[in-house]
Design a protein around this nucleic acid. Structure first.
Lengths: 191, 191
DNA sequence: TCCTCAATATGATTACAATCATATTGGTTC
DNA sequence: GAACCAATATGATTGTAATCATATTGAGGA
C-alpha cells in the first residue's frame, strides 16, 4: 500500500494523520519531521513571496508522497495544506535516513525518485515560461496537469481563472480541445 | 577541485572536454553518459517545446555541476550548450552509480545535493509565478540570479530583455536598486 | 423544494509587457 | 585607431492578460 521504496521501512516509522479541508500539515521553516504519503484527499504545497503572492508548488493526492526533499534539509521549505479531507501517513525522518545508509536498494530508489521530481519541476518551469495564455493552457493539459478544478489549474499555471476559461473556450473553438462537461476538457485526438 | 561528493570517485572516471561557444555538450533524448563539472565557462541547459519556444532550465558556470539527474535516467532530458568557451569534466555514469551503492557517505551527499536542486527549482517556480515584471525582476535579483548578462537574466526569468531594462530603470528610480555600472545592479541596502 | 455558496463562464475596460525601432556604449579584431 | 558587433538602453505602438462586473450552473444543506 505504501509505494516503493517506502514499503521497505518498518511500519513502526508510520504515523497516521487525519486532516479536514484547510488544516495545515506543516508550515514553511518548521523543523522537518518526515515525509508524507497520501492515502486519500488532496494536499497543496505552497510558497509565499514577500508581496503575499503564493505559488502552488505541488498538489499531492491519493497514492502520492510529498516532502521527500525535507529528509535532507533541516526545515520544511513550503506550507502544506489539506484542500480536502485527507488521510496521510507520516514517515519518520530519522528512520528513513537510517534506512538510506543501510540499504543501497532503498537509497537508489529514493535517488531515482528525486531525479524524477527534478524532471517534473523542470517541466513545470517549461510551462510557466510559455508566454501565451492559450499555448500555456494547452501545454499544461497535454502534460496532464488539469485533473482537479479549473481554478486550481489556473493557480498551478500562474494565470487568472478568467484567462483560463477564455483560453479553454478558444481552444475548443479551434478544435484543439474537446469539452466533455462542465469544467471538463480533453485534448482532441489528432486526425 | 571537484566539489563534494564527486571528489570521492576515482579520477579514472573523469574525462576532460573543451568546448567553443555554441558547441553542444549533449542533446535531449541522447543516451545519458554521465554528469558534468564546469571548470570554467558557461553552459546553458535548454528544453524545447513543440511550438519551438525554448526555456533556459539552468545555467551552470565555474565550479558547478549539471545533469546530475541523468544518473538515474536513461536519457538526457534537455540540451546542454556552451555559451562561452568552456572546460568541463565529464564524470562517468556507471562509475558514479557503483560508488553510490558502495559508499553511504557518497549517496547521502548526493541525495542532499538533489534535495538542494529541488529547492532551487521551487524557488525558480516561485519567481516565474510573480506576474508583475518589476516585482519578478526584484525578487530574482534578491535571490542572486543576476550574475551574468542582462539578456541571459531576462531569459532566465521569462521576460524580454527590453522589459527587464525598463524594470531595472524604474527600480533604480524608486531607490530599490542601485546601478553600479553598465549592466550592473545591486539591491540597495535598507536604511 | 428552496436557499446558499462556490465554481464556471463571459462581457467591458484597463494595465502592462511584447513587439518593433533606433540609439548608444564598450569590447574585440584587423 | 577605425570598423564591427553584441549588449545595453530607451521610445512608440500594439496585443493580450489582468481586473472588475455580472450571469449561470450545480452541489449540498435546511
Amino acid at each position: 500500500m505504501i509505494p516503493a521504496p517506502f514499503d521497505l521501512v518498518a511500519p513502526s516509522a508510520y504515523r497516521h494523520r487525519h486532516l479536514e479541508s484547510g488544516e495545515t500539515v506543516f508550515r514553511q521553516d518548521e523543523k522537518a519531521r518526515g515525509l508524507f504519503y497520501v492515502l486519500d484527499g488532496q494536499i497543496e504545497l505552497r510558497r509565499y513571496t514577500q508581496n503575499g503572492q503564493n505559488v502552488v508548488i505541488h498538489r499531492a493526492s491519493n497514492g502520492q508522497t510529498f516532502a521527500e526533499a525535507s529528509l535532507f534539509a533541516q526545515n520544511y521549505h513550503c506550507d502544506a495544506i489539506a484542500i480536502a479531507p485527507s488521510r496521510l501517513v507520516e514517515l519518520d525522518r530519522a528512520v528513513i535516513l537510517k534506512k538510506f545508509v543501510e540499504d543501497a536498494d532503498f537509497s537508489l530508489a529514493l535517488a531515482k525518485r528525486f531525479a524524477g521530481q527534478i524532471r517534473g519541476y523542470r517541466r513545470k518551469l517549461e510551462i510557466l515560461a510559455i508566454r501565451s495564455a492559450e499555448d500555456r493552457i494547452f501545454a499544461a493539459i497535454e502534460e496532464g496537469q488539469l485533473n482537479g478544478s479549473i481554478k486550481a489549474f489556473a493557480a498551478d499555471i500562474a494565470l487568472t481563472h478568467e484567462a483560463v476559461y477564455r483560453g479553454l473556450a478558444t481552444l475548443v473553438e479551434k478544435g484543439l480541445l474537446e469539452k466533455t462537461g462542465r469544467g471538463k476538457y480533453v485534448v482532441r485526438p489528432e486526425k
